[in-house]
């Protein structure tokens, strides 16, 4: 059972804080832009254009994926702190179901991540990409679905770790590998077999791949999408359902 009042409170609270903390927003936006223009721009000079796509254009979907990955995971991981020291206790003792808390938290991760992805997306004309109105809307929808899935994954992680030291473990062993093994920086089809295996079990791969379908010109060859669009969408939806279910169960555990 999902209580609308609980979801509203959790989302409204994070949204209010997000708007108030300008510095957090600026730094959240600055990181992907640095990657896009410094690394992407630099690499474009040594990586030849393939299928009409420059390296900087190629990593644009991956940078959107990075924005979503970081902001969704951060949004959910804050549960670890909140559980021990803060507002999460207020929510845990309220007469609302655990499942509502998970849905509320995933929804707020989705709202905040999609806003950040939309800001990064607005830079596409600077890269010489031509993305139509329908494709922009499609990318935002994919971003929302992907953020919901990754926020739910973050909730699952947060429910298994409950100390603040575990944060760097999550960053180094889950978040960074997820980013590098997602086809964000190199085409999946050019990876060695073992890495390709990890890439294929990473839900972020399919989110980024769906955005590649919508943002890169058709016939981009090695720089283009690796999987069928419908498979991408199906995996994102399946991952969301699985992570929300696990998150809901994990949250119901009592000591």
């Amino acid at each position: 059972m999902i209580e609308a009042n609980a979801v509203y409170v959790i989302v409204a609270r994070e949204f209010k804080k997000f708007i108030r903390e300008r510095t957090r927003l600026v730094s959240a936006i600055a990181r992907p832009l640095v990657w896009l223009f410094l690394i992407g721009g630099g690499m474009s000079r040594i990586v030849p254009i393939a299928g009409g796509v420059s390296y900087m254009q190629f990593i644009f979907p991956g940078i959107l994926g990075m924005t979503i990955l970081f902001s969704s995971i951060f949004s959910s991981i804050s549960i670890i702190w909140d559980k021990e020291f803060g507002f999460m206790k207020e929510i845990l003792v309220a007469p609302i179901s655990r499942f509502s808390i998970v849905v509320g938290k995933a929804t707020s991760g989705m709202v905040l991540s999609t806003i950040q992805a939309a800001i990064i997306l607005a830079f596409f004309p600077l890269l010489g990409l031509k993305i139509g109105f329908a494709e922009v809307a499609g990318i935002l929808l994919i971003s929302a679905a992907l953020s919901f899935a990754i926020s739910s994954l973050g909730i699952v992680l947060a429910s298994f770790y409950d100390s603040y030291e575990s944060f760097s473990v999550i960053m180094n062993f889950i978040v960074m590998p997820m980013f590098f093994l997602s086809g964000a920086m190199y085409p999946v089809k050019l990876m060695p077999t073992i890495l390709r295996f990890f890439t294929r079990i990473n839900p972020l791969t399919y989110g980024i791949d769906a955005i590649k379908h919508l943002s890169l010109p058709p016939g981009a060859g090695p720089m283009g999408a690796d999987f069928p669009f419908l498979l991408d969408v199906a995996v994102i939806i399946a991952a969301t359902v699985i992570f929300v279910a696990i998150g809901g169960k994990a949250f119901e555990r009592k000591g």
Partner: peptide, 12 residues
């Protein structure tokens, strides 16, 4: 409940 550690959101 008033917990040992504040459960107010201090940014609100």
């Amino acid at each position: 409940i008033v917990f040992q550690d504040s459960s107010l959101d201090k940014d609100l």
